[in-house]
Simulated assay, not measured.
Amino acid sequence: MAQVKTVVRRLKTPEHYHFTRTLRTLLVVSHDPCGELADGEFRLSARTPQGPGTLHLSRAGAELTATTHGPGADWLAEHADAIAGLRDDLGDFPGLAAAHPLIARLARTFSGLRFPATFQVFPRLIRAVLEQKVTGIEAHRAYRAMVKHFGEPAPGPGGLLLPPDPEAVAATAYWVFHPFGVEQRRTQALLRCAAEAARLERCTDSAEATRRLVAIPGIGPWTAAETVRTAYGDADAVSVGDFHIPNTVAWALAGEARGTDARMLELLEPFAGHRGRVCELLAAGGIMAPKFGPRMPIRSFARF
């Protein structure tokens, strides 16, 4: 059996760095076939430009050890600090946050929260498309089923699966996705994204990726923002069109129980450059607008 390539890199973390809060955004909750996070240990599989690989981050005090495996080991080692959120620069955010008492408090409480940047567009785009207009439970169930269907073992220990190969996804008939709980509209968006995946992965920054994403039928501002926030660590990406976030922002920043996308963007404007960071801090602090009416029902498209 051929030996799997392994690379090790040591990384220093900033003061108060929060390992779990920073990295858990990269995984689907409960169980992600492509990664795991527990007790100061994080693993993530990836299809890098150099081939498949697995990243293992372990924390000991103020240091992270990044161990990478597979043909993509060098690429993952080079980008390990970005994936861990260590390239996230708060810049002028502390000064902007100080102007609002709630945001100032959240910024102090969650000062160790950083934005990871994976430089991998398609894996996060899969999740974002599956999360369109359905509950998280439905979306995550569909994601796990899809990964297992296209599953290929990731290099190294851990038993992870690689994210679906976009070429394999693009070549799959739409009806194959139905048992995963994904209706034709989202499936067609996925297939279009898979066909454009190579071009998307060549985008140099968040702005270029967003332009290319929203040009794909079935991909709007919400899906693009959810994708680039993780792929590029874009702390300004706001999920316009979200069911909850406009209300949360309106309640937190203006005491208004309900808000529109326009009102949300108006209230976030003083935090330009860090608007997504503000939304993330509100979520981390458990800030929510008052709830009225029934919850969105959980459905099973696979039974339709």
Rank of each mutant, 00 (worst) to 15 (best):
P153W: 04
R43H: 05
T260E: 13
L57S: 02
H69R: 05
P52T: 12
T227A: 06
L96Y: 04
K291C: 04
R258E: 13
E266C: 08
A80R: 02
R299V: 13
L55N: 07
R21G: 14
E36C: 08
D81R: 14
P294G: 07
H178E: 11
L86G: 10
L90V: 05
P33K: 13
E15H: 15
T210W: 11
S45Y: 04
T65L: 06
A97L: 07
R303L: 14
C193L: 00
Y143R: 09
T172F: 11
F271E: 00
A128F: 03
S45T: 11
G241D: 06
A46H: 11
T118Q: 04
V129P: 01
H100A: 04
P94F: 09
V4S: 11
R185Q: 12
F42E: 04
A66K: 02
R124Q: 15
R47A: 13
D81L: 00
T172E: 11
I126F: 10
A168P: 10
A231F: 11
A170E: 02
D88T: 08
I298G: 08
I245C: 02
G158C: 09
L130Q: 07
G61D: 00
I126A: 06
A189C: 13
L86F: 11
A194V: 08
F122T: 01
G136S: 10
S300P: 08
T230F: 11
L191S: 00
D74Y: 00
H244E: 13
A252P: 11
P163N: 14
V147G: 09
V228G: 00
L253W: 04
A128G: 00
A73Q: 06
D236A: 14
T13W: 05
A197Y: 09
L268P: 07
R43M: 12
H31V: 08
A128K: 03
T204E: 15
P164H: 10
A73R: 00
L26K: 00
G220Y: 06
A215Y: 02
T187A: 09
A283M: 09
R186E: 04
T67D: 00
A283C: 08
G95N: 12
K12G: 10
I103C: 01
L191A: 03
L130A: 01
K291G: 03
F93D: 11
L281N: 06
T109Y: 01
E208Y: 04
R124C: 11
E131C: 12
A235D: 03
A195P: 04
E15S: 12
A46L: 12
D242Q: 08
R87E: 14
G159F: 02
Q132W: 13
G112S: 06
L55P: 02
A209E: 03
W222N: 01
G181C: 07
R105E: 15
Y232A: 08
C203L: 07
P123M: 12
T223E: 05
P164W: 12
R211Y: 01
A257M: 10
A254H: 07
H244R: 06
